[in-house]
């Protein structure tokens, strides 16, 4: 694995000013290897979503930098950042954010369209178990099914990094496990680096790399020698 695939160096970020100023990230440092399943763990307000957004190029740090494959995001123009996200990233959010008047297949194609080397849409649909729903519109699907579509939309791009922001936050236990299993599959099957933000301690066991945050700093930076499959997780 490439040691320097994703580097986070001395990252600082604060919101507000004066007395209301709040430091969200305070000198954060870590590295993620290519193909790694990395979980950013922490309670609410620990800065994990902000960190994810900075890595995703949709937010900027006050100081420090993020570099991917040696390219520093801070040196990129807005256009280059868009291109960076387009070519390298897949996003999954807690809310599914599907396009209401496109069906399942089309919503996944929205992701495929962005990639020079997309995966086969039908294959992704099958992998996600959406075959029988592929012509349904989002409002005809359950939350779990909608999240599958959202993962499909991200994965079909065949991204270098799959960014997941609390992907199971709005789902029940059973569905959450199914979704986690899918992300796990995508990681192993397509080789995408996964960075998942969660506050669910149990999820740490399925990751290669666990970074625990609190008050904007890395409290623990651990590598799991033995991973637990998602299907065996309990919480």
């Amino acid at each position: 694995m490439d040691e320097s695939f994703l580097q986070i160096r001395s990252l600082n970020k604060s919101f507000g000013s004066g007395e209301a100023k709040q430091d969200v990230l305070r000198g954060m440092d870590f590295t993620v290897k290519k193909g790694e399943f990395c979980v950013l763990l922490g309670p609410s307000g620990s800065g994990k979503s902000t960190l994810l957004n900075i890595i995703g190029g949709i937010d900027t740090p006050d100081s420090g930098y993020v570099s991917i494959n040696g390219d520093k995001l801070e040196d990129m123009t807005e256009k280059q950042l868009t291109l960076y996200r387009r070519k390298h990233l897949g996003y999954v959010f807690q809310m599914y954010n599907l396009i209401p008047n496109l069906n399942v297949k089309e919503n996944i194609e929205v992701g495929a369209y962005l990639s020079d080397d997309p995966l086969d849409v039908e294959e992704v649909i099958t992998t996600l178990g959406l075959q029988e729903h592929k012509y349904k519109y989002p409002n005809q699907l359950s939350g779990g099914q909608q999240q599958r579509v959202s993962i499909g939309r991200a994965v079909v791009k065949n991204p270098d990094i799959l960014m997941c922001d609390e992907p199971t936050g709005a789902l029940d236990y059973k569905t959450s496990k199914e979704i986690l299993a899918l992300i796990e599959d995508c990681n192993s099957k397509y080789g995408s680096t996964v960075i998942m933000v969660t506050h669910n301690e149990a999820i740490r066991y399925m990751a290669d790399h666990v970074i625990k945050l609190r008050d904007g700093v890395v409290r623990h930076n651990d590598i799991n020698e033995v991973k637990t499959p998602a299907s065996e997780l309990e919480w």
Partner: peptide, 16 residues
């Protein structure tokens, strides 16, 4: 109304 979708698409790499 579609702000979240637009945000997701922009985050996924759709240009303005």
């Amino acid at each position: 109304k579609e702000a979240s979708v637009i945000g997701t698409l922009r985050a996924s790499g759709y240009s303005k």
